[in-house]
Measured scan of single mutants.
Amino acid sequence: MDPFVVLVLCLSCLLLLSIWRQSSGRGKLPPGPTPLPVIGNILQIDIKDVSKSLTNLSKIYGPVFTLYFGLERMVVLHGYEVVKEALIDLGEEFSGRGHFPLAERANRGFGIVFSNGKRWKEIRRFSLMTLRNFGMGKRSIEDRVQEEARCLVEELRKTKASPCDPTFILGCAPCNVICSIIFQKRFDYKDQQFLNLMEKLNENIRIVSTPWIQICNNFPTIIDYFPGTHNKLLKNLAFMESDILEKVKEHQESMDINNPRDFIDCFLIKMEKEKQNQQSEFTIENLVITAADLLGAGTETTSTTLRYALLLLLKHPEVTAKVQEEIERVIGRNRSPCMQDRGHMPYTDAVVHEVQRYIDLIPTSLPHAVTCDVKFRNYLIPKGTTILTSLTSVLHDNKEFPNPEMFDPRHFLDEGGNFKKSNYFMPFSAGKRICVGEGLARMELFLFLTFILQNFNLKSLIDPKDLDTTPVVNGFASVPPFYQLCFIPV
């Protein structure tokens, strides 16, 4: 058959498939802009700032609406009420993970971030239990974070109060905490193996944040037939998995079943207990991918939040002064901060919360999916439909947070200066898919920041009023603009 005829037939089939998918069930789905064949609503979305586009569309179609990214149908949730109703009140029905062709290629359905069903539930339950087990290797997770915080302070001392970009050092600290939990080992910041790991993690975040990856996920045929950065992403992930597998083999040879040292040991012990169960989800494949998931999810998000926190503290020296006064009063100079201190430091706690609220790190979270046909607000959402959640619409709700575009710790303080919780605080998402490392991340943010401010004054290279804190939105995360500062020993 003539190649031209084959091409026309293929394009015609794709067009018909697109029209059929977009028209099927439209009477039951939430409203939304009319999609174009094949490309859907992509032309109506700013790929570099999806969150802003969703906010604009919500003003037209309401808090629940339908979009098509290519052939992929998505239902968008915008605003606290619908997000709570879906992710919390109907948590089980909305607990699936959205379709990610690239991740599915890399992870093969294993791990904790992109798995679904029984596998996801069992691996998540085990990971939560293990991360909360403060007795691994007779050292609590808090001990590990405190140790890394001391190392971080010593690295900052080496800058000798000269101007520096904190990106690298602030990236090393949370990565080392995860390494300590998974591998029972922290690395020197100049260790070549550690630097290679950091390089792969950072490069992957840069790649994932590009519009090209959005295109690959919406048109998965590209993955096999086109060159691009997605190939580098898959190569980096394969490198990390190979490295983790080597460490798993080392653990198998040296493990003491009665004295687990780290996450890998705990997983291997669980595998041993379930070795007679042919349906067990505790396999080497799941261990390797879960460890890679924890490394990827637990490094860049925390380091970016820390980097943004220091920029905001530079911009608002009056806030920094209040935090340091609270540190001096509650902790002093002669001991290290600990998590028990947080309950006695409402202002510092409010500042950490406000940093996370203000920066809105992951504006749309990772997409969910419905696990069955769901009736939601008089609409029928078919099983498997991807759910896109606007966390921006919750964290920047102007009824809950007056002047949401302003950095103001009073958003989390009552009139008496006591810490005030808010149900709208969802930087880790909400419901059954809430970030498994939430507790660890909150511990790291509090301890790293208090250790830094206990030991250093922060000095800006320019007038604080002239510092730009506008986030650089890159399609996946909101990151701070480049800046330098000086760490002046107190």
Rank of each mutant, 00 (worst) to 15 (best):
M1T: 00
F4E: 04
V5S: 14
L9D: 00
C10D: 00
L11A: 14
S12N: 10
G25Q: 11
G32S: 02
P33Y: 00
P37Y: 02
G40L: 00
G40W: 00
N41L: 00
L57S: 03
K59V: 08
Y61K: 02
V64F: 05
L67P: 02
F69I: 11
E72G: 06
R73L: 04
M74Q: 06
M74S: 07
V76S: 02
H78E: 03
G79Q: 02
G79M: 00
G79L: 00
E81V: 05
L87D: 02
L90D: 07
G96V: 05
H99Q: 13
A103L: 14
E104K: 01
I112E: 03
V113K: 12
V113W: 05
W120I: 02
I123P: 01
S127T: 15
T130F: 14
T130G: 08
L131G: 03
N133G: 14
G137C: 12
R139A: 11
D143M: 09
A149G: 11
C151Q: 11
L152Y: 01
L156G: 00
R157N: 09
P174T: 14
C175K: 03
N176Q: 03
D188Y: 07
Y189A: 05
Q192G: 11
N196K: 15
L201H: 08
I205Y: 09
I207Q: 06
T210S: 15
P211L: 12
P211Q: 08
P211C: 08
C216T: 09
C216D: 05
D224F: 06
D224G: 10
Y225D: 04
Y225R: 10
F226G: 06
K235A: 13
K235D: 14
S242V: 08
K249N: 09
H251R: 06
N258I: 07
P260Y: 03
C266V: 12
F267A: 04
M271E: 03
S280D: 08
T283D: 06
T283F: 06
E285V: 05
D293I: 03
D293A: 04
G296C: 10
A297K: 13
T299P: 04
T302F: 05
T304F: 12
T304C: 14
L313D: 00
P317D: 08
A321G: 13
K322R: 11
E325H: 13
I327E: 01
R333C: 10
R333T: 14
R333A: 15
C338E: 12
D341A: 05
G343Q: 12
Y347W: 07
D349I: 07
V355D: 01
L361S: 05
V370T: 13
F376I: 13
R377N: 06
R377A: 06
T386F: 05
T386H: 11
T389C: 15
T389M: 15
S393N: 02
N398L: 10
P402T: 15
P404N: 07
M406H: 06
H411A: 02
F412I: 00
D414E: 08
N418V: 09
S429G: 14
G431D: 02
G431C: 02
K432C: 10
R433T: 03
G437R: 01
T469V: 11
A477K: 13
F482N: 14
C486T: 14
